[in-house]
């Protein structure tokens, strides 16, 4: 399976920013600082269970329901 990480990242950015461009950039930066650069993941990226678990925790911490 592939693409789950990209979809999770996009959901976090979309839900935290509500479409606001400034918040989109800020949320992207926060994710990069946490080690998840949105540009490095595509719908073809392999689903890595450890990374998915890490992102789920990040989403919880950020108050985002995936």
């Amino acid at each position: 399976m592939s693409g789950e990480i990209k979809r999770m990242i996009d959901t976090i950015i979309q839900k935290r920013s509500n479409g606001n461009e400034v918040l989109k950039n800020t949320t992207r930066t926060k994710l990069i600082i946490k080690g998840f650069n949105p540009d490095h993941w595509t719908l073809q990226s392999e689903d890595d269970p450890a990374k998915i678990a890490e992102l789920r925790q990040i989403a919880r911490d950020m108050g985002v329901e995936l």
Partner: peptide, 11 residues
């Protein structure tokens, strides 16, 4: 900073 960033969109 990481936790504050989680909790708010305010800078």
């Amino acid at each position: 900073m990481d936790r504050l960033g989680d909790l708010t969109n305010m800078a």
